[in-house]
């Protein structure tokens, strides 16, 4: 056996990186649509809702929260894009890996562990989320919806939220046995309500109180609150800042732990 064979323990330790490398190569094949979607999606949203609805809101009531509607909306759209991107890049590969093409079972025959496969999928999703968030931020900036001073903090917070949500969805997707059920349940019962009831398009406080709980448990609302505080200085008490960060972090940590365990078990059953 030569020195280049697969037995060195130092090689096995970096298994998650090899999985991430594979996922990124796979994404690279879709680079045109990822870039087109990454830029087209914010342009469409900003033009239709930001500008269209924005004119209506701004002339009727002078904006929201003391700022033009577009500025109010921007942090929410950024967080939503990060969360959506993270979700895409963990759920589809996980369904493909376990159900459609079953490539996770091929990976599992190598020196990789189930946990490394889970972490690798998430790492690659992180790269995609960071890219999407940066592209989205640039479009927001061109529309004058954010200013350059908050660029780094806003991008970091949105990417962080997208990643924490992705970790949780990785664990959920790893439990899916039927792709049809999984997709229809998550999209109709989780993604759509989250997008509509998280204070994305108007402050959560304008919803009736019996619907506000959806916002409180929604990672999108927490990310949006942090984003508005960073972007235009929306007043946010320190305890709420801490709570939102802690909530997102807890979601990410619990999600990752569950996902690793579920991947390992499903691939050794």
């Amino acid at each position: 056996m030569s020195a280049t064979t697969a037995h060195a323990s130092s090689r096995r330790r970096f298994g998650a990186l090899y999985v991430a490398e594979y996922r990124l190569r796979n994404m690279w094949k879709w680079r045109n649509s990822i870039v087109a979607f990454g830029i087209g999606n914010p342009v469409l949203f900003l033009a239709s809702i930001g500008l269209g609805v924005g004119v209506l809101v701004d002339t009727a009531s002078g904006g929201v929260d003391g700022v033009p509607y577009l500025v109010f909306l921007a942090p929410a759209l950024l967080a939503a894009a990060a969360i959506q991107g993270g979700m895409d890049e963990v759920t589809f590969p996980t369904l493909a890996g376990f159900i459609w093409q079953r490539m996770f079972f091929a990976m599992r025959a190598t020196s990789l562990t189930g946990g490394q496969i889970a972490v690798g999928v998430l790492l690659a999703a992180a790269v995609r989320v960071a890219f999407t968030t940066v592209a989205y931020w640039v479009v927001l900036w061109l529309f004058g919806a954010v200013d350059g001073a908050s660029a780094v903090s806003l991008i970091v917070v949105s990417t962080f939220a997208g990643l924490c949500w992705a970790a949780l969805m990785l664990a959920v997707a790893a439990n899916a046995t039927s792709d049809g059920d999984f997709l229809s349940v998550t999209w109709r019962l989780i993604i759509m309500p989250m997008f509509l009831f998280s204070g994305t398009f108007y402050p959560l406080s304008s919803l009736p109180i019996f619907l506000q709980w959806i916002g409180w448990i929604s990672p999108l609302w927490h990310a949006t609150q942090l984003g508005r505080w960073l972007s235009y200085g929306m007043p946010l008490p320190a305890w709420q800042i801490a709570l939102s960060v802690a909530y997102l972090l807890a979601m990410g940590v619990v999600g990752l732990l569950l996902a690793r365990r579920r991947f390992e078990r499903r691939l050794t059953a």
């Binding site: 280049t4 064979t5 697969a6 090899y18 594979y22 990976m107 020196s111």
Partner: peptide, 8 residues
């Protein structure tokens, strides 16, 4: 890609 899973 399979070889890369082994870290080769």
């Amino acid at each position: 890609t399979y070889g890369r899973y082994f870290g080769l």
